[in-house]
Each structure stands twice: as structure tokens, then as C-alpha cells.
Design a protein around this nucleic acid. Structure first.
Length: 970
RNA sequence: GGGGAAGUAGCUCAGUUGGUUAGAGCGCUUCGUUUACACCGAAGAGGCCAGGGGUUCGAUUCCUCUCUUCCCCACCA
């Protein structure tokens, strides 16, 4: 009976994982032994939206490596898995799904929508956890958490209430980052800056009661409608005389002052800047200093407001811009236009241009939290690997801005705030407009881009922001709106927008006689939802509490309405290390008592550097605040995985490597090895299929080594049980024994050390190199001559232990075979090897022999000998080669094959070669000698240095002797 | 504007305090199917360590400048 020669991961992985998991040993509570020392990792929770990508695979590989190493090392290893609800990301996905089925979240309402999301979560959350299992993650599933499960929701509420009670959370009306597409506020971190091509317009503002004018440069001419000042730098001599004068804002003819402010750059543009406090963060600050008011001309949906004037109201900004520039040009106020590339703020998620909007939001005051977070790293309580990220971390914390934590979404932790007196719905409605509003008076037809519209036409609604098709409708009225003021009664829509698909359905349900057909094509440029007008019947008192209040302390009112908004996803993530372990108060018995005390702070936080601010820093701040402890002792920041072009792998671009496909194709171990060995801390790296294939080859090599080792004896004999501190080897008897044990000790020491230094790549590389090029290539071949079965099995056993954290499946499988499957015995639980004694004498002796053999083989190739012509030293035929090794190490002189011809000596061996081959050999020898001569020259030059330190001189001299000896031999 | 990383073999990358003839994997060339493995074995070819200058007895390694690439942060309209 012969084993299959190629390793088939699929036939072992699934079954093995099942056995591991059902053994219960992923849970530290059931691990055997004292295990006084705890080692814990909180798994960065993947989003419940969709599949595991290659970055997750890396994280799992690294964390599993650490956990398995710790477990073998006798520690109570706990790895807490979980998933993240991922607010916006998930909501958008579910919305998209609803759109496909022809409905929308607004139509079905908040409650029903959330039911859909939960269903989605169940489905995808399940997929994710299956995939994590497929990666071989030895995490404790009995402690699995979800950011929106009951316990964590409790933690989130408790955290919010405490921060509020301590005065660190406040509500404020502020200019915030607003995404017109997602219709929600965003934190500063969720805004990306992108360089985009645009123009710089130079616009003249007439100075009042003067023939002068002042020219401002702007990239956003449409905002001039909301200008309330022009600002210049106080040091700017060009404008000194103008400060305090008033200018006329073009088009709207508003009189505004010229103010002096040091924040204005003199060198940019004309040195004069228009101030639009409602739509620019810097302008808002200038306005604050100078007491200017704000005029909001752009609405939350990214279109111009009524304040922008009758002619422009309702137009998307980019269209308004065109009309404004035209108007300026017509009036001769446009000085010039330049091409200009500028950094624009865009939504990190959907790349929509961010429109700063003033609105009521909840903020966390970060400065008091940042200081201790900074100190924790400075004092060494937290170590960041690699260290260079500390600087970035400090810089961010020192310049921290308050964190806008409210989001205008439905999916997430509802903000635990109640307002006394509920909103009373009076009237709701929406309108859809199809024309630029530059016309006045009664019109009966519109013309847009050569299309004429008439009553009765069916129009296709296309969202002006995204360009997506949203539905069809019939024009019912030629006025300013196509459809207007349909009565709507659903009170849950307080913000956000209606989709047109929904609008159309409304039309149909209210006016069943109207036909909506999809064939007439036209465009509707905008639609709009008018927010409900509300009237409170309470006092509006704000009550922050995790439960709904029953009685208002101010007015005794009994009606309360909870804040509609939810919290930023990262708010709950920030609590992850301790909320998963039971904070606060064991979460009403849902979590094992004592977990928090035992496993927190966690040992290591392993994640990508790209979420250092989003997540890592916030965890430090929140953990220190709520538990008084750091969340983790070490932060290991892994690099990002890049595609072959050096770009971050992206699923949408199709450049990503799918870890599940790779696992299927090459096995989990191969992929994990490729990831772990490919990366080094904080350093981005390229990944491709070829690398994984290379590791598959290694896994297969290991498998075949295993086949050989298990084949040599049948099971039982050999390996005795060993406690973890004393891995005693059978007494070495031969030089070969001493050599391999010495090498094993070396690799054990180096690999262990590298793991402790978080240099997983070096550890893996070292083990791989040993397994393949020392153990398999040389020792296994020696074994064929020496037949020390016990030692072979022993060394292999240790090797499997060392490799287990890197390639858990194949090593476990082989180990089970090696031990003839004793029940409930797992390599996963075996003791991590301790290094034994080194033997430099035997290592050196081996090195010499290896060099001898290599030289013989080299000569064979260069002289053109066929293998059989040389006899003992035959490439590939290690068995016989190793007979010679054995003889050498045993101090027996080596015998060559006697043939006719010249005799040559190589090191310790002497051989006779056929005369016909000697010529070829001579040319090879000449080349070799040349190399040695050059080397000798270099060494001599070094020796001439009078300042050469003694220890170096000694080394050089030894080398010189060696070269001379080799030269002589040639 | 501030900060960071990188430039080593055709490709992807190691190279730990300055001191062997700078390494590995993949690819390439040649040889070999001998019972663990062709997802293999053996022997090779291939590097002014981006470039200039400096420190040193000695620099891929330390300093400095230049060039090139990438990334992060930031309210120059």
C-alpha cells in the first residue's frame, strides 16, 4: 500500500478543523495544565458585508500563529472572534439589494428595513465565520461576539452615557463633513483628499462707492451666492486700504465687508478670498472671528437651496456652477479662468464630493482622551511594532479634532438620547423638478438639451448625484414641479431622501388612473423630499439614558422620542477589547465572570496600519477611559497587500487574490505560509499566486518527508512522552547525530527568538530552510545509510512542532500519523520545543564535508562526466553519497572509484577520473583558481592595514590559510 | 506644506549593532527520472547593493545631497 505522493489539503483540512473545534481546546478554560499566564488577542472583527479578503487572511494567519505558539508554550491562549455591523457599508449593501427588488428603505420604513439587515447579517455573518474556520483559526467560538449583540449594545450605551455624564459628549450645531450621496455626516477620518482637475476662477467684486474692484480666486464660484465677506491677509499691503470697506457680491448684489484675517495666504491666487461660512471650514472659522453670518445656498442633497435664488434653486451644484460662471462672464466680472488641480474632499466610501453642511450632531471631546493615550505609548505600556508608527500616532493624537459620532443612518447603535415631546407630523411631500429655473412666468413646455417636455409625457428619473436610474413618472403639471405634495404619512422619514422609485409608486397608488410607462425617455434633474414639519408638544429636554425615560424632570411630560441617529461604527469597535470580555458588569451574566480580569489587557493587537487612527488609537483612548487599562500590550501593524502593479488589492477592480479560491487550489497552509513569510511589520508587500504555489510545493515536500519518516518504522516505538521543558533527545552516538541535533537546536532557538521579536517572516523562512535544505536534502539521505530511526522520528517530531503555528493542518495531520493517532492527542497542544546543546565541532565537520561533495558535483558537471562515471558521488543518489559522508565523519578515509587516468584530490576525498575527462576538468580548475587568486589579493590588501583590529586580523589570516590550502589542492 | 517608506539578480524580497567571495524564492541554462517527493534532485549563469560626496583601516550597512517611486497627515480658497 502506497501513500498518495501529493498532499491533498482538501482531504484533511475540513475534518481536522472539526476535530480541533469539537475537542474544545480552542477555549482556554478547557486546556490542560496550569496555564497561569494568559495570552489573549481580540480578533479585528470583519464586516458582516460579504466575504473574507486577502487582508483578513493575513490577519488570521498572523494571529493564529501567535495564539498557537502561546498555547504550545503553556499559556492560557484566548482568541476572541467576532464580526462588525459596519454601519454605512452594510446599510448601502442592503439598500442596493432592496433597490433590485424594486423597493427602498424609505418605502418599507425603519423597522422593516432593520429586519432585512438582520437577515442579511445572519446570512453573511455565517459565511464569514465559516471562512474564518476554513483559514484554520483556532479561536474560541464559544466567546464569539457581534458589535450589535445585546451585550455589546449595552456596553455602547453605557459608554455613551458615561461620556455624556462626564461632559465629554456634547451636541452641537457645526459645519460637518456631509456626504450628499450617503446622506449622512462623516468624521474627518472618513473623508479622503483627492487631487482632481478643475479650474480657478478669478472674479471681480466691486467695491462700494468706488470705481475699484477686488479680485478673488475660487475653485467654487457657485458658493459666492452665500458669500458674507471678502478676506485678505492683514499684512498684505495691496489691500491694506480696502480693509473695512464694503464690496458687492455679484449676481445677488449683496453688500459684504472686507475683513483682514491672518489665515489668508497672500501668495495664493490674488491674496483675496471670498468667505462662504456655510460651505467651507476655513471660511466658517473666519466668520466666527469676525462675527459674520452664514447663508446656506447648498442643501443636504447637493443641490442649491431657495436661498440661492429662484433661478438656481434645485439645481445640482455642478450645473449651478456653469450658470453662475456664464452669468459672471456676461456681466464682465470674470477676470480669467485657469486650469487648476486641487485637493478636493471626497467621501471615503463612495467618492462623492463632500459638501460641508451645518447641522446638529453629537461630538466626543477628544483632547482629554488623547493625552493618556499618548502617554501610554510614550511610557512603554503599549509597544507599537514597527516603532516608526509611534510618531504618526503621536502626531495624530496631538492634533486631534473632536469626533463627530452621529450618523444619519438606520443600521447601527441608536443614540441613547431622548427628547421630551415627540414630533407631530403635519405634512410631508416631495417634488420632482425637471427644469433649470432660469425661466420666469408660466410655461407649458420645457426644453432641456433639445428635449421638449409636455404634460402627459413619461419621464425617467435619474438621480442627479449618482446618475442612477431610479424610476419613471408622468408629468402631471407644467409648473415648477412635475409632481407635488402628495400626502405622505409615514413619520419615520425625518431626514434623508426619497428615491424616485418610491415616488412613482406613490403616484400610482394615489392616482391609479395615471399611466407610468417606461418607454418615453427624458430626464428629471432633481427630486426633492420636503422634510416633515414638526411641532413638539413637550419641552424638548434632552435626556441621555440607556432606557427610555418615563417622566420628564423638567415639564413632567410623558412623551419621548429617541434620537433618530445612530453611532459611528467605530464607536463600538473602539470598545472591542473589553466589551467582548464582559465590560460593563459581565453584561448581565452573558459573559464568563472573570474574563475581563483574566484576559484584559489583551496581549497583542494585530491589524493593518491603515486603521491606526480609525481603530487602534480610539481603542487606546476608550479603554484607558473606561477600564483604566491599556487595551493591549503590543500593537503589531501588518503591511497592506498589494497586487502586481503595487496598488492596494481591490475587489472592485478585480485585482485581488481571493483567499478562498487560493485555499481551495493550494491549501490553507500554503496560503498562510505565503502571507506570513511574505510580509514584514508595517511594510506593504506584493502577493501573487506564484508565491502561494511555491509554498504549496513546500507543504508537499513536508508531506513527503512525513511519508518517508512514517514509512521507516511502524508506529509505536520511539517517542516517549515529554514534559514541555525537557525535550530530551536519544543520546547522540555518531557525528551525524550530533550534527543534526545541533542544527535543530540552532533553528529552534532562532525561530523562537524571531517569533518573540514579532519577526514571523524570519522565523518561517528559517524553519522552511531547515526543513528543506538541511533536514530533507541532507539528513534524510544520511539516514538511509545510518538508519537511526529513533532520532529521525525525534527530529521530525520537533520540526513539526516548530512548523505547526505556520502550517497547522499539514503538521497536525503528519503528527497524528507519526503517532499512529492516539485519541485526543493534538500537535496543537504539544509542547513548544526547547533548544538543546550546540556542537560547533560537528557542525564544522559537516560543513567541510558538504563543501567536498559540492566540489565533486561541481567538477562532475564541468567535466561533463555522466553520474555513473564518478561512482560514489552521484547527483540525486544521496544514499551512496551519504555512505561517503558517514565514512568521513567517522574518520574513515574516503574511497573513490579507481579508474584509469590522472588522480586528483579534493579535500578529503581522492578520486580517479577517466583521462578523456581531464581536459574539461582543467579548464574548470583554472577558473576556480582564478577566483581564489583574486580573493587572496583582497585578503592580502586587508592584512596590509596596520589599523586592522586584532580579532579581524585573526579572521582574515585564517581565511587566507584556507584559500592557500584550497589553491594547493587544485 | 508637514511626515514616513522604499530603490539590492529578469521578478518578489532577506541582509539584526559597519568586517566571510552580498543571500533566498520564482524565472532562466545544463544535467538527471536512483523506491519520500518532478509540487523532485544536482550543478550553474545572472548584482559598480539608484547616483554623487563625506566619516572610517574598511561602507549595501552610518552622515549628507541629488534623482526616482509609493504612502500618510493638512482648512491655500
Amino acid at each position: 500500500m502506497s501513500q498518495p505522493t501529493a498532499y491533498d489539503p482538501r482531504s484533511v483540512e475540513h475534518d481536522l478543523y472539526r476535530r480541533w473545534e469539537s475537542s474544545g481546546f480552542f477555549n482556554p478554560d478547557t486546556l490542560l495544565g496550569k496555564r497561569a499566564k494568559a495570552f489573549s488577542i481580540a480578533m479585528p472583527p470583519p464586516n458582516v458585508t460579504g466575504d473574507l479578503h486577502i487582508g483578513h487572511a493575513l490577519t488570521i494567519a498572523l494571529e493564529d500563529l501567535m495564539i498557537r505558539h502561546a498555547r504550545m508554550n503553556g499559556q492560557a491562549a484566548l482568541w476572541v472572534p467576532g464580526t462588525d455591523h459596519a454601519g454605512i457599508a452594510t446599510q448601502i449593501k442592503v439598500e442596493r439589494m432592496l433597490e433590485e427588488t424594486g423597493t427602498s428603505r424609505h418605502e418599507i420604513g425603519r423597522e422593516v428595513f432593520l429586519k432585512h439587515v438582520w437577515q442579511w447579517k445572519e446570512r453573511y455573518g455565517d459565511t464569514i465565520t465559516k471562512q474564518i474556520r476554513a483559514m484554520g483559526a483556532s479561536c474560541d467560538w464559544s466567546r464569539e461576539r457581534f458589535t450589535m449583540d445585546e451585550g455589546l449594545t449595552e456596553a455602547v450605551q453605557a459608554a455613551f452615557v458615561k461620556l455624556y455624564d462626564d461632559g465629554l459628549i456634547y451636541r452641537a450645531k457645526r459645519l460637518i463633513n456631509w456626504c450628499p450621496n450617503d446622506q449622512t455626516a462623516l468624521s474627518d477620518l472618513e473623508v479622503r483628499h483627492e487631487e482632481r482637475a478643475g479650474s480657478l476662477w478669478y472674479i471681480n467684486y466691486r467695491v462700494k462707492k468706488s470705481s475699484h474692484s477686488i479680485t478673488v480666486a475660487t475653485t467654487r464660484p457657485e458658493t459666492l451666492l452665500g458669500d458674507t465677506a471678502v478676506a485678505v491677509n492683514p499684512k498684505d499691503t495691496r489691500y491694506k486700504a480696502l480693509v473695512g470697506k464694503r464690496v458687492i457680491v455679484p449676481i445677488v448684489d449683496r453688500e459684504v465687508p472686507i475683513v483682514a484675517d491672518a489665515r489668508v495666504e497672500m501668495d495664493f491666487g490674488t491674496g483675496a478670498v471670498k468667505v462662504t461660512p456655510a460651505h467651507d471650514l476655513l471660511d466658517a472659522e473666519i466668520a466666527k472671528t469676525h462675527g459674520l453670518h452664514a447663508i446656506r445656498v447648498i442643501g443636504p442633497d447637493g443641490t442649491m437651496t431657495e436661498k440661492a435664488g429662484r433661478d438656481l434653486a434645485g439645481l445640482p451644484v455642478h450645473e449651478a456652477r456653469v450658470l453662475i460662471v456664464e452669468a459672471l462672464d456676461r456681466d464682465g466680472l470674470l477676470e480669467k479662468t485657469e486650469d487648476y488641480r486641487s485637493n478636493v474632499a471626497v467621501c471615503d466610501r463612495c467618492s462623492t464630493h463632500i459638501e460641508p453642511q451645518e447641522s446638529d450632531q453629537w461630538f466626543v471631546n477628544m483632547a482629554p482622551l488623547a493625552k493618556p493615550a499618548s502617554a501610554a505609548v510614550r511610557s512603554g505600556k503599549i509597544r507599537i511594532v514597527p516603532k516608526r508608527f509611534e510618531k504618526v500616532y503621536f502626531h495624530w493624537l496631538e492634533n486631534i479634532q473632536d469626533w463627530c459620532v452621529s450618523r444619519q443612518l438606520w443600521w447601527g447603535h441608536r443614540i441613547p438620547v431622548w427628547y421630551c415631546g415627540g414630533p407631530k407630523v403635519k405634512r410631508m411631500g416631495f417634488s420632482a423638478s425637471v427644469a433649470p429655473r432660469l425661466k420666469h412666468g408660466k410655461v407649458t413646455t420645457w426644453r432641456i438639451r433639445d428635449h421638449h417636455f409636455n404634460v402627459g409625457d413619461t419621464v425617467t428619473f435619474i438621480h442627479s448625484g449618482t446618475g442612477k436610474f431610479t424610476g419613471q413618472g408622468t408629468i402631471t403639471d407644467i409648473d415648477r414641479t412635475a409632481v407635488r405634495q402628495l400626502p405622505l404619512t409615514d413619520p419615520t422619514h425625518h431626514q434623508g431622501r426619497w428615491t424616485l422609485a418610491h415616488a412613482i409608486r406613490r403616484i400610482q397608488s394615489h392616482y391609479p388612473d395615471r399611466k407610468v410607462t417606461p418607454d418615453t425617455e427624458a430626464w428629471v434633474y432633481r427630486y426633492r423630499y420636503t422634510a416633515p414639519r414638526t411641532a413638539r408638544n413637550g419641552c424638548g429636554e434632552v435626556i441621555v439614558s440607556h432606557t427610555q425615560p418615563t417622566r420628564c424632570p423638567t415639564c413632567s411630560g410623558k412623551t419621548f422620542v429617541q434620537d433618530e441617529d445612530v453611532l459611528d461604527t467605530w464607536f463600538s469597535s473602539g470598545l472591542w477589547t473589553f466589551s467582548t470580555l464582559g465590560w460593563p458588569n459581565n453584561q448581565k451574566g452573558r459573559v464568563k465572570r472573570g474574563d475581563l480580569k483574566r484576559f484584559h489587557p489583551t496581549s497583542v493587537m494585530e491589524t493593518g496600519w491603515d486603521i491606526l487612527f480609525f481603530w487602534v488609537a480610539r481603542m487606546v483612548m476608550l479603554s484607558l477611559y473606561f477600564t483604566g487599562e491599556v487595551p493591549f500590550r503590543t500593537v503589531y501593524l501588518n503591511g497592506l497587500i498589494l497586487d502586481d502593479e503595487g496598488k492596494k488589492m481591490s475587489k472592485s477592480k478585480g485585482t485581488g487574490i481571493d483567499p478562498l479560491v487560493m485555499t481551495e487550489k493550494y491549501g490553507t497552509d500554503a496560503m498562510r505560509l505565503a502571507l506570513v513569510i511574505g510580509q514584514s511589520a508595517g511594510q506593504d508587500f506584493k502577493m501573487n499566486e506564484q508565491k502561494i504555489a511555491g509554498m504549496r510545493n513546500f507543504v508537499n515536500k513536508l508531506w513527503n518527508i512525513g511519508n518517508y519518516v512514517t514509512g521507516i518504522g511502524n508506529g509505536e516505538s520511539g517517542i516517549a512522552e515529554r514534559s514541555r521543558s525537557t525535550t530530551h533527545h536519544p543520546p547522540p552516538t555518531t557525528p551525524t547525530d550530533r550534527w543534526i541535533l545541533s542544527r535543530l537546536s540552532a533553528v529552534t532557538e532562532e525561530a523562537t527568538d524571531a517569533i518573540q521579536r514579532f519577526d514571523f517572516s524570519a522565523a518561517g523562512q528559517r524553519l522552511l530552510d531547515f526543513a528543506w535544505h538541511e533536514f530533507a536534502d541532507w539528513y534524510l539521505e544520511i539516514h538511509k545509510a545510518e538508519r537511526n530511526d529513533a532520532l529521525l522520528r525525534e527530529v521530525f517530531d520537533v520540526l513539526l512542532r516548530l512548523l505547526h503555528p505556520f502550517a497547522p493542518f499539514v503538521t497536525e495531520q503528519l503528527w497524528q500519523q507519526l503517532r499512529a493517532r492516539r485519541k485526543n492527542e493534538f500537535l496543537m497542544l504539544a509542547a513548544w520545543p526547547q533548544p538543546g546543546r550546540r556542537s560547533t565541532v560537528d557542525e564544522k565537520r559537516f560543513a567541510e564535508f558538504r563543501a567536498t561533495v559540492a566540489a565533486l558535483r561541481n567538477f562532475r558537471m564541468h567535466s561533463g562526466h555522466k553520474p555513473h562515471e564518478i561512482g560514489h558521488v552521484v547527483p540525486g543518489n544521496h544514499t551512496r553519497a551519504w555512505l561517503t559522508l558517514y565514512e568521513r565523519l567517522g574518520h574513515v578515509s574516503l574511497q573513490g572509484t579507481a579508474r584509469e587516468g590522472s588522480r586528483i584530490g579534493l579535500g578529503y576525498a581522492s578520486f580517479h577520473f577517466p583521462a578523456a575527462r581531464v581536459k574539461a576538468y582543467e579548464s574548470w580548475k583554472k577558473k576556480e583558481r582564478l577566483g581564489l587568486t583574486q580573493y587572496l589579493k583582497r585578503l592580502d590588501a586587508q592584512l596590509k592595514n596596520t589599523k586592522l583590529p586584532d580579532h579581524v586580523r585573526k579572521q582574515v589570516e585564517a581565511k587566507r590559510d584556507d584559500v592557500l590550502r584550497r589553491q594547493k589542492e587544485l
